[in-house]
């Protein structure tokens, strides 16, 4: 203990190992269910709030501005615009990635919110560029049914 016995070598510091072995199952919710089903069909779904006349992305069953319940969902067909993007050089274990992952916030001008997803790593894409989602051929109803967004020619 620090009062009497000082640690002079780091290797002498005693530690107790521990971990948090917890697994989760998250319900998608009403908005999430619509969104995931849409992805399986190769579509991007948004919620529509009639009180503020806005599309909410990603879809939720309430509008956080109006505090009103939403039961109307719509196909969001674009134009999808890159609001911001980053090149990520770390994996989840904080190891360095030699080839960065391009992650962007993508939105449509009439929406509140947007979608966080990948950009085609082989394209030069800038903020303000118009992009489109590229879906996997085999889709299961998950966020990764979208492979990435790429430039719309």
């Amino acid at each position: 203990m620090p009062f009497k016995e000082f640690i002079e070598k780091l290797s002498k510091a005693k530690v107790q190992k521990g971990d948090i072995p917890v697994w989760h199952l998250y319900t998608l919710g009403i908005g999430g269910d619509v969104f995931y089903k849409g992805l399986k069909e190769g579509k991007i779904k948004g919620a529509y709030c009639e009180y503020c006349n806005s599309v909410i992305l990603p879809p939720r069953m309430y509008c956080e501005d109006c505090f009103e319940k939403i039961d109307k969902f719509v196909d969001v067909k674009g134009p999808f615009i890159v609001v911001a993007y980053t090149e990520l050089y770390r994996d989840l274990d904080d190891n360095r990635l030699d080839i960065p992952i391009k992650v962007a916030l993508i939105s449509v001008p009439y929406a509140k919110g947007g979608i966080i997803h990948f950009l085609n790593p082989y394209q030069e894409i800038e903020n303000g560029d118009i992009v489109k989602p590229v879906f996997n051929k085999k889709r299961v109803g998950s966020l990764k049914d979208i492979k990435y967004f790429e430039l719309k020619k």
């Binding site: 995931y36 993007y85 992952i101 916030l105 990948f118």
Partner: peptide, 20 residues
């Protein structure tokens, strides 16, 4: 549901916000 399934390092949030 909407973000974490991408399985990426959360520093991307700071990178995105800094870019904005």
């Amino acid at each position: 549901v909407f973000v974490r399934p991408l399985e990426i390092n959360p520093y991307f949030v700071a990178g995105l916000e800094m870019d904005m």
